[in-house]
Design a protein around this nucleic acid. Structure first.
Length: 562
RNA sequence: GGCCCCAUCGUCUAGUCAGGUCUAGGACACCAGGUUUUCAUCCUGGUAACGCGGGUUCGAAUCCCGCUGGGGUCACCA
């Protein structure tokens, strides 16, 4: 039996899942699925200061929502389906809970003289680094800890003196055999004896990753290209520890359309700019303190907690760019569309559709059956929101009306509860067919149904639309509207098809085109010249509401006319 | 700056490994038409790219070199 393929995604829980991370996770997942292997989720929380439980939970939910489900990893329940667990007994999956394991391996390395404790303080090292920079030479740790006799080093270590542990890097070039990039060789001058255990006793990322990947049986590592230069370090560590080296594939990064790196800070940046442009110098919302606001405005790198930031953005009237998976979810993107788009950003199935075009639309199932590291491109990609938007509206279009109604309602109950409470399930269903082709995101749906969310006497009439539909020329529109309003009680059943038929009959009876009748009615009941098809529009409002609105519009139009 | 990676329409890309069938294909965006009671959907068509310079070759988007450009990385972050 060939070795099983085991991949892993190992985020650090410092916030919600970034779309770049989501793509990495998606590819790792797909590679494992394709090979019938396992996909491991591991939480890299060795940075005590920056990691949080909330972020860790958020990432789990983001992945689950996307449909990227893990076999081994933290236990999580998604829509009644259990995810994760530890059937192979390779956990726990939070690195902070694996300190003993790391220390065993570090001890082994020290014992074998492959690693050594170093006692310089951070300040001392910082000074040396600065010196190197001033002299315009690359800084490397000078191994001065090795000048201390081994016995003395070990004694000081045993005494519990503050220290870090460094790996002795070999004095020879290391070649990474990368599935995407080919062989990449880096010389020994590029590396110094890097730290594998920090002063606080936690392992660094390098040590933890290598130990965990080996112990969890990971065979294929797919990650962003920012890790390429780390790989020789990891290979050195694997050799020192006697671990096999997994297959590596580094993929290009994702950028903003302007070429800048897609960063969580972009959201803060947008909000800061809006505040600055509007000349706001005090926190516009109560949840942000005066002090925090001032510091935040002053420091380009400073970020506000996401809910505070969102509140502030709403108050200032600025739309934040979507960066994290959760941003896209909130903005009304479908998980399938996001995955489809993300997959295409750097990967191509290289297949044709039945009509000879490049295959671009596919689902997770397809990815699981067809993913291949050969299809990963080498070039860096820009994140084109317009194309994602198009993917999303296509994906919405492929839902049938009932599915759409369900999806829209579920989204709204989480992100726009007022819409659900005002319309109710029945009207949402009634609207589904009309809203679906008119929205590119689930959030867009609101603008389509806005007219039904307001009271009969509280929406405003667009003067231009009123003029165009009923007052222009001989003001025949006004006459028709009046007549139609009077005929309302004659409509037997108040549903869209019957209403449409009645309007058609009305137009025929008055010997005018549909447009001449439909537009005045539309403007009367919605205030504007744009709405879903008339039958649905009237059906949703209800007969009494339509009557009231026509009466109100008549009065408005006549007052304008006079 | 050192080291490393990359380079086809505005954007994502197919084609590059095995040079000719590429007057370079698709998608998004954009523009122009058409269907439609408005808007949207939908349909048809169009504009638009091999970064530059040298080689190799009968022939290069495809191979080689240089340049330019973009990116990554140089933490007791991951």
């Amino acid at each position: 039996m060939p070795d099983p393929v085991i991949t892993r995604f190992a985020p650090s829980p410092t916030g919600h899942l970034h779309v770049g991370g989501a793509r990495t996770a998606l590819f790792c997942w797909a590679l494992a699925r394709k090979a019938g292997g396992r996909f491991v989720l591991r939480i890299e929380d060795t940075d005590q200061a920056r990691s949080s439980d909330a972020a860790s939970k958020g990432i789990l939910e983001d992945l689950a929502w996307l449909g990227i489900h893990w076999d081994d990893g933290p236990e999580y329940s998604w829509k009644g389906q259990p995810l994760g667990g530890d059937p192979r007994g390779v956990g726990p999956f939070h690195q902070a809970q694996r300190l003993d394991i790391y220390n065993q391996h570090i001890d082994k390395l020290i014992e074998a003289d492959a690693a050594y404790p170093a006692f310089e303080s951070p300040d001392e090292l910082e000074a040396k680094r600065k010196e190197a920079i001033d002299a315009k030479v690359g800084y490397r740790y000078d191994r001065s800890a090795l000048d201390i006799p081994r016995d003395e080093r070990m004694a000081r270590l045993a005494n519990g003196e503050d220290h870090v542990v460094r790996l002795k890097m070999p004095d020879e070039p290391i070649t990474v055999h990368d599935t995407v990039l080919g062989d990449v060789t880096v010389g020994p001058d590029e590396f110094d004896d890097f730290i594998i255990r920090k002063r606080d006793g936690f392992p660094t990322y390098h040590l933890a990753v290598v130990v965990d990947d080996a112990l969890m049986g990971v065979t294929h590592v797919l990650r962003g290209q920012e890790h390429l230069i780390n790989t020789p370090r990891h290979i050195a560590l694997q050799r020192a520890l006697g671990f096999p080296t997994p297959a590596y594939a580094h993929m290009p990064l994702i950028f903003n359309p302007d070429g800048s790196k897609m960063s969580k800070r972009d959201k803060d940046k947008a909000a800061k700019k809006a505040c600055k442009d509007a000349g706001i110098d005090a926190p516009p919302v109560a949840s942000v303190s005066d002090d925090d606001f001032r510091k935040w405005m002053k420091d380009k790198t400073r970020q506000l907690p996401s809910d505070q930031l969102r509140e502030l953005a709403a108050a200032v009237g600025v739309t934040l760019p979507e960066i994290d998976v959760e941003d896209f979810r909130r903005a009304g993107y479908l998980p399938g569309a996001l995955c489809n788009f993300l997959a295409l950003l750097g990967w191509n199935p290289k297949q044709k559709t039945a009509d000879g075009k490049d295959l671009e639309t596919f689902d997770l199932e397809f990815l699981a059956a067809n993913f291949d590291t050969k299809g990963i491109g080498k070039g860096q990609a820009k994140f084109d929101r317009a194309k994602l938007l198009s993917f999303n509206s296509d994906a919405i279009g492929r839902l049938d009306d009932a599915e759409f109604a369900r999806t829209w309602r579920d989204w709204a109950s989480a992100y726009d509860p007022e819409l659900v409470s005002t319309l109710g399930d029945d009207k949402i269903e009634l609207f589904a067919g009309a809203v679906k082709p008119r929205c590119k995101t689930l959030a867009d749906g609101r603008s389509v149904v806005q007219f039904a969310l307001v009271d009969d006497d509280s929406y405003e009439f667009d003067g231009k639309a009123v003029h165009k539909a009923m007052l222009k020329g001989d003001a025949k529109g006004l006459e028709l509207l009046k007549a139609f309003g009077a005929s309302l009680d004659g409509i037997t059943t108040w549903d869209a098809p019957t209403i449409d038929a009645a309007v058609e009959a009305f137009a025929a009876e008055h010997e005018v085109g549909m447009g001449k009748v439909a537009q005045p009615i539309r403007v009367a009941v919605t205030g504007a010249g744009v709405s879903p098809p008339l039958g649905v529009t009237l059906a949703v409002l209800g007969r009494e509401s339509v009557k009231a609105r026509i009466t109100r519009c008549l009065a408005f139009a006549e007052s304008v006319q006079a």
